[in-house]
Design a protein around this nucleic acid. Structure first.
Lengths: 340, 340
DNA sequence: CGCATTAGCGCTACACCAGGT
DNA sequence: CACCTGGTGTAGCGCTAATGC
C-alpha cells in the first residue's frame, strides 16, 4: 500500500521529495530540475515521490541559487490599448514557449513612472527587460543609468522602435512605412493633409510625421499641417473635432499617427455630420485588429505586432541575436481614402 | 572626496552596501527593506551607500528568505482581446499601487494549458492567483487540485465570474445583466432573436444565454434560437454570416454573447449587404471601449472591467476581504437596436 | 534601546567517493 | 590501477529574523 495522501499543509520541498523517495537531496534536484543524468530506477522513484507530494520547484529559491531567473519583464504604455495588447500577446506567447514567465508593468506614458518601474523590475533580476513605451523628449540619462544597472545584473534590455542607449533594438521602420503611406495617398489624388500627432519629441510620432511629410510632398502633396494631440483614441477624437470646428476642406486627408487616433478621428468626423472617407479622408498606422470592423475601412500601415513581440523576446533571451533587420511594413489602402 | 563611482560589474548585494556603509548586514537590511527602526545616523549612511552602489534588493532572495513573494499571477484567455486587456489593466494598476508585481500568462481558452500554467505559476509561490479564463465543461477536478496546492503554498486564488472550488470569487452577474438586456430589447419591440454563443458548458456564455432568454421571453419575445460559435470576433462574424446565408428575417435581433462577437456579427451583416441596426438588430455584452467607435453604436451591457480587475486584486491580497457584492451591470441602448 | 551575530529559507553545483570494468 | 559512471555531502546564493550583547 502506498504512502497515504500527504497531509502537508505547507508546500512540499525538494527535501521532502528526497526523503520520500529515499534518495539524497542532490539526486532529487538533478532528477527534477537538473541536467546531469540519473539512473533510471532512481529517476522513477523520485518522480513518483514528487507526483505524490504535488511538488513544484520553488522558483525564487531556484533563482537565488542559480543566480539567474526565468522572468522577462515587459514595460508597456497601456495594456488596455490594443496596440500593446497585441504586442504583449506576442511577447508572452514566445516567452511561454521558451519556458519563461512574463511580468507586465504599465507606464501610462509617464517617463518618471517608467524610471521607477525599471528600478523595481530590476529587483527581479529578470533575464530580460523589454521596453515598449514610446521614447519622448525627456532626459534619457536617468533611464539609461537604470538600464545599465540592470545589464550589470545580467539582464538584457531590448527596446522596441526607437532605441535607448545600452539596449538592443528591435527596429520598427516607422519612417519608411509612413513615407510609403504618404506616397500612396498622394497617388490617390490627395493634395492637402493634416497630421494628428503626439507632442514633439515622441520618437514614434516624430518619425511617422517626418516620413509621411516626405512621401506626401515628394509625390505632389503640399506640406501637411501638424497638430499635436496625443496618441490615444480620445486625442484623435478631440483633435479632429477641433479641426472640423475651425473648418476643414472636403478632400482633406486626416492622418492619425496611429490607428487608435485615426479611429477617434473617424468618430469625430461622423459626429460632426460629415462622412468619413467621402468628405474627409482618414488614414492611420499599425493596422490593429480592431480596425477591421471600423467603417469605413481604415487605410493604414501594417505593423506585425505579434511578430515584433516575439522578436523582442528572442532578442532578450538568445545569446547570439543577430540584430535582425526591421520587419517590412506594408501600406493597406481601404475605403477611408477613396481615390479622388 | 567620496568613493569613486563603483566599478561593479556584478549586482551590488546587501553585503556590499553594509560594508560600504560600515555597518552590519542586519542593520543594512533593516534600513533598506525591514521594518524595525534604525538610528538616524546609521540610516543615512546606509541609504547613501545604497544610492552610491545603485543597490536594488534581490527580490528572489528576499522571497526565499521571507517565504512570501510580491507577485500576483494573472491568467487570461487572450491578452490581445480588449476584454482581457481592460481587465489586466485594472489588475496591474491596483497591483502596482499595492507594491506588487503582476505576472501574466495566456491560456488560449485551453483547459489543459490552463492547468499546466497554474502548475508553473505555483512555482513562483505567488501571493495570489487571479483566474480570468472562462470555465468550460471540462472536468474541474484537476484544476481544483492544482489550486488547492497553490493555496497550501500560501497563495490566494481568485476567480472572476464563475467560481471554481476552493477559490474566492469576484462575481459578475451575467445572468441579471443579460436578463435586463433581454427585457430591454423586448421592450423595444423585438420578438425574435438568435443568440450567438460559445459551446455549451462555458459558464459565462451559458449564464448570458439563460438570462437573456428569460428576460426576452418574459417580456413578450419568443424563445431565442441559440447557435454555438465561440467567443471571438471571428466566431461572431462566421456565425452571423452563416445565419444570413440561410436566411434571417428583417427585424430579428442578433445577440452576441460578448461585444467582440457582436462586432464580428455587425461586420458580417454589413458584408452581406444588409444594414446592421435597421435590417438586423444586434446586441452585445461587456461595453468594451472599442465599441464606442463602431457604427451603429452597440446596444450592450456595461461590465466595469477595470474595476473588476482592481476588485480581484483586492480579493487576492487583503486578508479580510468581505467577498464584495457583484458590481451592478447596466444596459446601454444604442443604435444597433432601434425601436421597432 | 539599538546594534551585531548567525541560523536558516529552498535550491544548486561543486567536490567527493563507491563500485564496476 | 586508472577511469568512468552515478551516487552523496555540503558550501553557498542574497536575504531575513530570532537571539545575543
Amino acid at each position: 500500500m502506498p504512502t497515504p495522501p500527504p497531509a502537508v499543509t505547507r508546500a512540499a520541498t525538494l527535501g521532502d521529495v528526497a526523503q520520500e523517495a529515499g534518495v539524497s537531496l542532490a539526486t532529487a534536484s538533478r532528477v527534477l530540475n537538473g541536467s546531469r543524468k540519473v539512473a533510471e530506477n532512481y529517476r522513477v522513484r523520485v518522480q513518483a515521490a514528487a507526483e505524490r507530494l504535488g511538488y513544484t520547484a520553488n522558483l525564487s529559491a531556484q533563482t537565488t541559487a542559480r543566480g539567474t531567473s526565468a522572468v522577462v519583464a515587459l514595460l508597456v504604455a497601456d495594456i488596455a490599448d490594443p496596440y500593446f495588447g497585441q504586442l504583449a500577446a506576442g511577447v508572452t506567447r514566445a516567452a511561454e514557449a521558451a519556458g519563461l514567465i512574463t511580468t507586465i508593468a504599465i507606464t501610462d506614458r509617464d517617463a518618471e513612472r517608467e524610471l521607477r518601474l525599471v528600478r523595481t523590475l530590476r529587483g527581479q533580476r529578470p533575464r530580460g527587460i523589454i521596453l515598449a513605451t514610446s521614447r519622448d523628449a525627456s532626459d534619457p540619462a536617468p533611464l539609461a543609468r537604470e538600464l545599465e544597472a540592470a545589464v550589470a545584473h545580467g539582464a538584457r534590455v531590448v527596446t522596441l522602435g526607437a532605441g535607448v542607449a545600452g539596449s538592443q533594438v528591435v527596429p520598427i521602420d516607422n519612417l519608411a512605412g509612413a513615407r510609403a503611406l504618404g506616397t500612396a495617398v498622394a497617388g490617390l489624388g490627395y493634395r492637402s493633409a493634416v497630421v494628428i500627432a503626439a507632442a514633439e519629441g515622441v520618437r514614434t510620432s516624430d518619425d511617422r510625421v517626418a516620413g509621411f511629410t516626405e512621401g506626401f510632398t515628394t509625390a505632389g502633396g503640399s506640406a501637411p499641417r501638424v497638430v499635436r494631440a496625443g496618441i490615444s483614441r480620445d486625442a484623435g477624437y478631440t483633435a479632429a473635432a477641433a479641426l472640423l470646428a475651425e473648418g476643414l476642406d472636403e478632400g482633406t486627408l486626416l492622418f492619425g499617427i496611429s490607428d487608435v487616433v485615426a479611429i477617434g478621428a473617424i468618430s469625430a468626423v461622423r459626429d460632426a455630420g460629415r462622412v468619413p472617407g467621402a468628405d474627409i479622408a482618414i488614414a492611420g498606422f499599425d493596422d490593429i485588429a480592431a480596425g477591421r470592423d471600423i467603417v469605413p475601412g481604415i487605410t493604414t500601415v501594417t505593423v506585425p505586432l505579434e511578430a515584433l513581440g516575439a522578436q523582442a523576446l528572442e532578442a532578450a533571451v538568445s545569446d547570439d541575436w543577430d540584430g535582425a533587420a526591421a520587419l517590412p511594413l506594408e501600406v493597406v489602402l481601404r475605403d477611408s481614402t477613396p481615390r479622388r
